[in-house]
Design a protein around this nucleic acid. Structure first.
Lengths: 344, 344
DNA sequence: ACCGAGACTGACAACGTTGTCTAGGCTCTA
DNA sequence: TAGAGCCTAGACAACGTTGTCAGTCTCGGT
């Protein structure tokens, strides 16, 4: 019998349960029982199987297992950029919860590109992850309809889902920004600038809304030239800050829309000869060690991730539930830069 | 509630190629052809299949595909802590390379626990990842023998593999630390402290070796009380720093073994009334904005990840190759703290 | 000694996909 | 017009595992 076109080295050359069974002189199913710790195997048989497993270096093929069982014990996480310090703790929190539920984490970065987000999400769905935690880049998630219908537990974090009914875990971006700006107003500022991310991003829009609300509530006008939205690339933020600080109506304080904007603004202010107050959205490491320390609206990234992941597993464990919205509050941390009085 | 058989809703209720085929009135294999863009399907047939796919919300089940094809188009990344800013860029770089090769990234954190590392690695292998990038926590990786033999491309990063022959991508920890300490010596320091991570971690040991080498080369003694190794928890580092700074032979400069140590030392020094020089291993955000700026030995985390991932795919693409070792050089960045003269 | 109960064990189908192989239908040449 | 050759399409087995079910064996009670 010429074993002709034997597909060579499929998984390299991994032993299967069949090989283990042959070596141990038992049936295939018995190996399966031992591997999965099922009852009904005599200690002697189990020992023989264990020895064969050891000798061959067998590892169960989870792909086949998944195919049979229908659950992959893995969840997907799609975020914007793994390298952004804001997402580190979030991602870590999701991982911890997943681990507690015996699941692995598969993740990918969308780089703030809606197409790439969709591509990633669908790739994860094709791998049949049991659930998804998504920090959306796009604003239309109808492409997820079939997945939701098929029972893929999905939770959106940091930003809401678009045109679809799904769980969402958010920070109180509006309230946080309003509080931050109100804080500056309370310290005497009347002309306050806002530098934020692209307004198509939900968090950016909400924070801008918070800024406007605080100004309006205090009866203060908002000059168009005080507001700058766009990429968070350092060059863009730098020139925006310089413009805001040097116009005909220069501001005495700046509210920075996220951590990346804040650090760039800190650099710009350091080069300035007059003091300008600053409050930033998002806390960041060493904010307290700068001179002055940077006052921030802190959101708890780990809590966002934890909440989302717990919601996801809750959904996976139990009965279906209607989509729900969770909003986590933010916290103002005074460190000096937000308490500077207006100069001039 | 019939507890009996519920084979329904396996993956929720996902349509399969069979369902699509039935709906489109074609054969199963024809659907497969369309889904995979294989040639040999008339435009008319293709259209009918596409419509059926659309209508049913079909997504190919990659688990089954993997089972058949033997490649998962995914690689695993095991690191220490996703939330550590050092690993963000590294992980991102690995992801970028994977993406360029059409592969997904599955990752997990070992939390510096060898058992957890092994558990994670084996779970990834059970999922039949095509390759592994591992930042090892343990120092014995013989458990990977069967995997390597089975052709799982494996690259170790940041720290070498233990008792096994595998590719390794490292920074020049020894040389970097030696340069940093020599830098302090060149600025007049004679009594220099070293605060590092646990010595069982390879990078920590190498950096300590570099410190000792620089001191020896300069003909300087090293008092035991100047060297402190252990956890990088802030409390531990803080008390270590305070001890080193207040002993009978107080140091005039400190070399910090990694980014976490450095930021804690910065805090301790800020509370001090005399200036103490500092050089830290690893660069970190805002190091230049502190007063004084923090002089560091920078390693390129992204380059580590990129090099490792490229090596991995090189191995996956091509013929087998012997294990190789890559060493990336470090770079001293002067910012002020490392150029302070000895006080007292 | 016999029977039933219970404990072990293995044969077999199925999970959803892809590679192989073969059957038709068509075109093109001699 | 017959044969060769090409193109499209579908039947079928196989990937490695687990659930089902039926078979064998042992043991205790009669």
């Amino acid at each position: 019998m010429a074993e002709t076109a034997r597909p060579e080295h499929r998984y390299g050359n991994r032993p299967t349960m069949k090989d283990v069974a042959a070596r141990a002189g038992v049936g295939l199913k018995t190996v399966s029982r031992v591997v999965n710790g099922e009852p009904g195997v005599t200690p002697d048989t189990e020992r023989r199987v264990q020895e064969a497993i050891e000798a061959l270096g067998f590892r169960r093929n989870d792909s086949a297992r998944v195919l049979r069982k229908g659950r992959t014990a893995s969840i997907g996480l799609v975020l914007e950029d793994l390298a952004d310090p804001f997402y580190g703790p979030l991602s870590r929190a999701v991982e911890e919860v997943a681990r507690a539920h015996g699941a692995l984490l598969i993740n990918g970065s969308s780089a703030e590109d809606p197409d790439r987000e969709q591509e990633l999400v669908l790739a994860l769905c094709a791998r049949r992850v049991d659930g998804l935690v998504v920090i959306p880049a796009g604003d239309d998630h109808r492409y997820l309809e079939p997945e939701l219908k098929a029972g893929v537990a999905t939770v959106f974090v940091d930003r809401p889902a678009g045109r679809i009914d799904a769980d969402v875990v958010l920070s109180d971006n509006f309230g946080g920004a309003r509080d931050g700006v109100a804080h500056l107003i309370a310290h005497g500022h009347r002309r306050i600038g806002f530098i934020g991310d692209q307004p198509r991003i939900h968090t950016a829009a909400e924070r801008l809304r918070g800024y406007r609300a605080a100004m309006t509530e205090a009866g203060l006008p908002v000059h168009d030239s005080w507001v700058s939205l766009g990429s968070t690339a350092p060059e863009r933020v730098r020139s925006a800050a310089e413009a805001i600080l040097s116009g005909p109506e220069p501001v005495t304080a700046i509210f920075a829309g996220n951590n990346r904007v804040t650090v760039t603004v800190v650099r710009v202010l350091a080069d300035l000869d007059r003091p300008v107050a600053l409050v930033g959205f998002d806390d960041f490491e060493l904010a307290d060690m700068l001179r002055p320390g940077v006052t921030v609206i802190a959101q708890d990234a780990a809590a966002l991730g934890r909440t989302a992941a717990e919601r996801l597993f809750h959904r996976l464990d139990g009965a279906p539930d209607t989509a729900q919205r969770f909003e986590l509050s933010t916290r103002l941390i005074r460190r000096g830069s937000g308490e500077l009085p207006p100069a001039g």
